[in-house]
Each structure stands twice: as C-alpha cells, then as structure tokens.
Design a protein around this nucleic acid. Structure first.
Lengths: 216, 216, 216, 216
DNA sequence: CATGAATGAGATTTCATTCAT
DNA sequence: CATGAATGAAATCTCATTCAT
C-alpha cells in the first residue's frame, strides 16, 4: 500500500469538475486533492474513527486550520471520498456499455472489477465507508447511488445476454446483477480479513457466477 | 429491534461457560450478561466507536467502575461479543450436520441463515465487528474462526450433495461453500443500507445459488 | 479583591441545600464550591468570555475533565453563579421584612445594599452576568427573578412608609422600588468604570432618593 | 430593529471627520462606514465576543483582508463604535445648551434621552461597550468621556434651574446630574432584559426624578 | 466486589491575524 | 488597495481508564 497508488486515485478523481481557471483556483484544487489523498491514506491505515483531523492535516502538509477552509469538517471529507468513488467505478460501467457479445463483456467486467477490489486499499476503503454509511444518511445515500449505477449497467448486459442466448432464459437480470455485485464485493472484503495466501478468488468466482447465470 | 430479543441472544450466549457454583458466581455471571447485552444494544444503535463505556455501564445498570471488574476494557467487551457470535451460529452448523438428503438440508440452511441475517440487528452487529476486525487481530481471528466453522460444515454438505448427485459434479465444495456464505452475508449487509421496501431476498438468493450449484 | 472574600461568598452560598450526608457527598460539594469560587474569580479578573474552562479548572485545583463531572459546561457554571446571587441578596431582603418604622428600615437597606455593590467584585460580577443574560434566556430568567424578589420586598416597605406618612402619599410603591434598585445598581456600575477617587456615592444617593420619596 | 436604522446611525456618525477630498478617499470612507455599520449589527445580534471578524466582513460585503486595511483589529472596530456614540449624544447635549427655562428644557431632555435608550439597539450596544470597557482602558476612557460631557451639560441646566427656583435650593447639580443620567440608563438596560410588556418607563421616571429634583 | 469521582490526553472546531498574489 | 487562503494557538468538551473509599 504505497503513497503513489493513492495519488493516482485522487488524480483520477479530480479530473471531472470544471477546469480551474485562475492560478489560485488551481492551487486550491491541488490542496483539496492533497487533503483527500491524505485522508484516504489515514482512513486506510487507521480507520475513520481512529484518524484525527490533525493526522489528515499533517499528512497532507496542510495546517490544521486550513483544512477547515476546504472542508466543513471531518465528516465532509469522508462524504467527498465516498462521492469520488463514483469516478472510480466509471471505467467498469463504461466497459459494460460497450457493444459486443454480452458474455465476453461480462467476463471482462467480472475480471476487471474483481481485480479492482482485490487491491486491499479499495476494499478497505469501501468497508470503512459502508460502516459509516449505516448511521450517516448522506453517506448511505451516496453509497447506494454509486452501486445502483453499477447494478443497472450490469443488469443491462445480463438482459442482453439472455436475449443473445448466452444466459439462462429465466434469469431476472436486475436481481442477478445485484447478487453478482454483492458476491464480488463480499469476496473481496473477506479476503481483506484472511491473512493467509490469497485463494484463487477470481477463478472460483467466475466458475460460480457463470454457473449461476448460464445454468450449466 | 426490541430489548427482549437481545436478552435472548445473550442468555443463549452465556450458557456455555462452566456453571456458576456459588450464589456470588451466579450474580457475577448475570452481571456480565447484562453488560454484554447492553453493549450489543449500544453498538447496534450508535456503533462501536460512537458508544462510550459509560453508555454501556448505564444501560446495563452497572456502575462504571464495576464494568472494569468484569472486562479489562471496552475492546474486550467487543471481543467477547464476537466470540459469542459463535454460539449463535451453532444451530445452523448443527443443522448442516444432520443426516438426510444434502439438497433438502442445504435449502433449509439457506433459508435459516438468510432469515437470521435478515434481522437488521444481526447484520449490523456483524458489520460493526468486521469493521473493527480489520485492525484488531484478535477480533479478526475470532471472526475468521467463526466463519471457518460455518464454511467447513457447509462444504461437507455440499460435498455430500455432489456424491448424491444433487449438485454439479465439478463443484469445488470448499470454495463454493465460501462463496455461498459470502453471498448470503453480503446480501444481508446491503439490505441494511437500502431503505426502500425489502427485495424478496431469499427467493432470488435461492434461485441464484441453486443455479450455481446445480448447474440447471 | 482577595481570595478570601470569595471563599466567604461561596461558603455562604452553599449553605442552603440539604446537608450532605456521606463523606463523599461532602467532598463533592466542596469541589463544586471550589470550582464556583475559582470561576467567580476568573470571571471577575478576565471576564466570562476571556476565561477558559481550563483557567477555571486550574484555579480550582481540579483537573479539566473533572470539572465536567460537576458541571455540564462553562455556561452552566455561570448559571449556577447567577443562581447563587440570590443567596447573597437574602440578607437585604430579610432586612426589609423586619418590623419597625419604614423609613429607618429603608435607610438601613439603602446603606447596606449600596455598600454591597460598592465592592467592585459584586458590581463587576453582576455586569458580567447581565451582559450574558441578554442572549442566554436561562440566565436572563434568573437575573429577573432575583431582582423581582428584591423589588417586591422594597415595594412593601415603601408602601408601609406611605401608610406611616413617611413617604409621599402619591407614591407608586412598585415603580418607585424598581427605580430605587436600578439607581443603586447603576451608581455602582458606573463607579466601577471611573478610576478616580470614589465619589461619596452613598450620601448623594441617599439625598437624591429620599428627596424623590419624601418629596421634600 | 431593521437595517435601515443602523445605516442612519452610522451615516450620522461618519459625518464629522474631515471631508474626503478625492474619489478614492470617499470610497474608503464609505467602506469604513459599511464595516462599522455591519459591526454594530453583529454586536447587537450576537454580542462582541460571539461575533467573528469574518461575520463583520461578510455582512459589510468586504473581504476579510480588506477589513484589516481599515482597522488594525477587531478591538479597534469596537473602539471606533464607542467613539461614534459621542455623535449620537450630541443632539441631547445641544438641547441642554439651548436658552430658555431650565425645567422645560430638562423635561424635554429627559423625554428625548429616555426615548433614545428605549430603542433596544441603543441600550444593548451600550451594555456591550460597558462590558468591554471594564477591562479595556481605551474603551473605558471613551465611555467616561462621552458621559462626562453629558453629565456636565445636564449639571449646567440643573444649576440654572436652581437659580431660577425651579429646583431644590440645596441640590448638588453635579451629583444630581450624574444620578439622573444613571437612572435613565439603568432603567433602559433593565428594560432590555424584561420580556413582558414595557412598563410606562418615561412617566414613572419623570415623576421620580422631578420629585427628587424639585422636592415636591 | 462495588462505586463514581478523578485524570489528562486527545478530539474537533473556531478565530484573529498575516501575507503572497 | 483588495483578496481570501493560510496559520496555529486556543477553545470547549469527551473518553477510556484508574483508584481511593
């Protein structure tokens, strides 16, 4: 779990808003990015509740007070991180929207998304957010929206697969999509806890899921 | 989510240690039970980190200092709760160990365990423990042990099912068991976050899983 | 303004509640007293807003956290101080209730209450409380109640004085009482601000007030 | 208590300094005025210590940094406001300097000044300043100077009244003036705290004061 | 064993002021 | 002059844990 990987995450995340026009705006955006990046690392290493605002500020190389010029509070930092997860899921959603045979696309997606969650940092961050989402409605909302998009995209490809004869004809695409996503994620989360050598998660997952979808 | 249900949980939980022989021992055991019960309720309502030791003591009707006569600290209360989860899983493991046709037993297990986790209190408590388990090795250990037992029992029945011709012949019982458990749990966790009307979780889950196992 | 005088204040104040029965209760009451005493001194020296909770705790010889075992917060310390002022006014109210010629009693009261407020600590504390009372309803309430009692007692003696022919027959006792109290207090407050040699406040005050009441 | 009334106050206040000669000077003066006006409103609504410099700047429509181009600090804003109170008292002092029968002029003054302080904004602002004046010598100084002028003017008219036979011959004009001012002010301050229907302050005040001065 | 007052480190947040742009 | 991001000290309050009674 190195610093570099998170810089990439946050760099990716911060692409989407309107381009900063002035030099000052750019500097401000960079600061925000640094803070988010630092927060992500702190939350990963120590958990949301074990992380102090001071830790974040220190790691971001920002003064404590200044952090509050960029975010109303600790909670809002997590909210923003949860929101940025959406950008991370975008490639997988885009993949599902591509034309081509449903089954092949589905398998690619499966491999891609599983690989994404196989990185402990992604899985842990999601657990951290889930945990907070239980009692903080705004985070819960974001979490659900993010995943609803993913499920919808997956459901579409599954439905197409049914039409193409690639999947069981009696498949409820929506529900199956939901379950597939949950399975991928749950598999990843458990993997974080088990310390032994990683199981061959992907292969087993693929077999299991395809059996469920194809029915043979 | 009423108080009574937790009393049952904890009552069930506290059966197993060596029987208290003196009156004082019995009183002590009762105190411990009350504290655990109170802790469970607090953790459910507010989360582990949002719960103060004072909250637990107050809810248990025990003095703050006295709580420390029963548990070395807050962390250890959670450890004990995690340990007690084992007792909760026992019935489902017992079910899997029963003689009879594998498929029927499996379906009963599926329904039973899904119903167990469909109660928000059980799902939330598990999330709370999982979240803490990431960075606290002793809790992580317990968590894994608990589930390893469950997976092993499930794997056994799946293996028997394969022999009986009830499931796909190429099924890796161990891995399939792992995935089935994860799927049941993940489904339950997600259900906690979504506020809308509950999906027909069980029916869909059963279809999906059986398709995966039976292969038609 | 020496420490001793406040010890007296607080000692006087804490007489009234039910006697502490256990040793622990007594110790607790003493701690509370010490905190209040320290708070009074801090507020006098530096003002309510310039005083930190740490200052109070340090001066009281109490740990910061422990202060919060005795008072919910800084505000509540001031509330209690405001409430204790009532006890301080009691002697003057008692004086007014004594039998005897109204005018003589009134003059004694005038001298007594003016002398009380001539002590800068009493005047400053009242200003501090008044200032906070503007925007904190609970303190405002206490303040008004305290003074309503005083005004009522004074009004009674003035009314008796009218009957006895000591005061103007057309005197509105209630309003006159209100104004007399206000005048005494205002005189004291102004006196705090002026640094020069004290005016002969009492003599002038007495002349002025008696002229107003007696009408010659 | 509407915004307009304060604009008037501050407009009145800012008349006296040397006329701005250049356009820039005028703009600068306007900025200062806006800041003072905003500060007055903030102090009234939330009190001096509860008001942040940011609040003032925001309300004045001025940038935070810019405020510091006009005032060395928060304290100095209050100092200036205290200084401007002088301008507010000017009309009442002018009134007292007019020729004519002392008693009539006095009564007019009484009515005018009482009405001025009957506006809660004026009374509250004065309390706020008084409170700060206790521990800030420069504000205390201003406060005393302002009132010394008022007292002096009043003392003069009282002295004339004595000569004219309108007031008691044994009246100490200086002291009586001091007390009358204090009484008017104290009456106003108390009125701010009491929430019930306003007493007929002026009528009672007038009766009381005249009785004291006239001696019948 | 039972009690709860005491501890003090640490949490989050605010604020007057500065200064590079 | 104008701007507002940056600063860091200080504020209030919480909390797991200890310990004398």
């Amino acid at each position: 779990m190195n610093d570099r990987s998170f810089k990439i995450i946050v760099a990716t995340m911060s692409v989407e808003p309107q381009k900063p026009q002035t030099k000052r705006d750019k500097a401000t955006a960079q600061r925000r990015g640094k803070i988010l990046e630092a927060a992500v690392m702190c939350f990963l290493e120590n958990g949301y509740h074990q992380t102090g605002v001071r830790d974040i500020a220190a790691r971001a190389g920002v003064s404590l007070g200044n952090l509050y010029n960029h975010f109303p509070g600790k909670h809002d930092v997590l909210v923003e991180i949860a929101a940025l997860e959406r950008a991370e899921l975008a490639p997988y959603i885009a993949l599902l929207a591509k034309p081509g045979p449903a089954r092949a696309i589905f398998e690619k997606f499966l491999a891609g998304y599983a690989a994404y969650l196989a990185k402990p940092e992604n899985a842990i961050l999601t657990i951290e957010i889930t945990s907070e989402a239980i009692r903080k409605p705004d985070i819960g909302e974001l979490f659900l929206v993010n995943h609803a998009e993913l499920v919808a995209a997956l459901a579409a490809i599954l439905a197409r697969g049914v039409e193409e004869g690639a999947f069981r004809t009696d498949l409820d695409a929506q529900e199956a999509a939901q379950l597939v996503i949950e399975l991928i994620e749950a598999s990843a989360y458990r993997s974080v806890l088990s310390k032994g050598p990683k199981r061959k998660i992907l292969a087993n997952l693929k077999n299991f899921v395809l059996a469920a979808l194809v029915g043979k």
